[in-house]
Design a protein around this nucleic acid. Structure first.
Lengths: 137, 137
DNA sequence: GCTTGCCCTAGAGTTCACTTCATAGTTTAT
DNA sequence: ATAAACTATGAAGTGAACTCTAGGGCAAGC
């Protein structure tokens, strides 16, 4: 299979696929060269790219991905280590979610204030005063 | 107040402050030049940086920030427009949270599978088969 | 008057995950 | 035979928000 065909199948551009190869995410199980130097992809390449997409979908950077794929290839991690890794990832994402929650808190307070400002400017003033005591701005 | 003092007060680096100025986030209400060309910051600069931080804390890019600050300076938006904007921001953040939720879903499934693999490999096999039907990988 | 430690500028470097470009060889269709 | 469409390479560009460097000018203490 040539590069454009693979790209179409996977919903990627040929540039991205070559980029992944350069980054060491694909090896000779996935790509070989024809006599004219064109890349020829095996079926395994499809599985590989699916795996790459899966790792990306759980928030992995390409650097992490590379490591994970190497471990995957060499079977070099125990189930327990993998479980640990998953839990670490989960915590990482929980933290990011919490950051967003804080943003939402702030936005909700702003919204409350602005709404009050339309309906009852006096109470809005009060709210502003209470808000000032104990936080920034 | 000189730049290092302001940086210390605000928990920023002098580079960041100069960068903000270059980006048009600070103007002559906040910085003036001394005879030796050193920047001299007013108290308003502190408020300005606090405001910048607040906008950042609710997930604004510097580009958005710039716009928001201009509106803030010129008082050019009605309360209703601001409420709309806040709601838009909220939706944006909710969407990002949902992406993280999807990641967590996937991670939880992986975790479940890996845990089962330790305790009951046969059931884990089953799970894998069921998982395959209806999704990728 | 010398060192240390601020301050200035313009511009380059960083990270990430691509994307685009310039240039050139190969294959396919007409 | 020639044009269109594909392939290859290495290198540069993108965007966001800084961060750092080089090369220089002031300032304060001894």
């Amino acid at each position: 299979m040539k590069i454009q065909e693979l790209a179409d199948k996977m919903g990627l551009t040929i540039h991205t696929i070559r980029f992944y190869e350069k980054e060491g995410l694909l090896d000779n199980r996935h790509v070989r060269r024809e006599s004219n130097n064109y890349r020829n992809y095996s079926e395994e390449a499809i599985e590989r790219l699916k795996l790459i997409k899966k790792f990306q979908s759980i928030g992995c950077s390409l650097a992490e991905l590379k490591e994970a794929l190497q471990d995957h290839d060499t079977n070099s991690r125990t189930n327990l280590q993998i479980i640990d890794w998953i839990q670490g990832k989960k915590e990482e994402i929980e933290r990011k979610k919490q950051e967003y929650d804080q943003m939402l808190d702030t936005l909700n307070k702003m919204l409350e204030y602005r709404t009050l400002l339309m309906n009852d400017p006096q109470k809005a003033e009060e709210m502003l005063r209470n808000w000032h005591t104990g936080s920034s701005d």
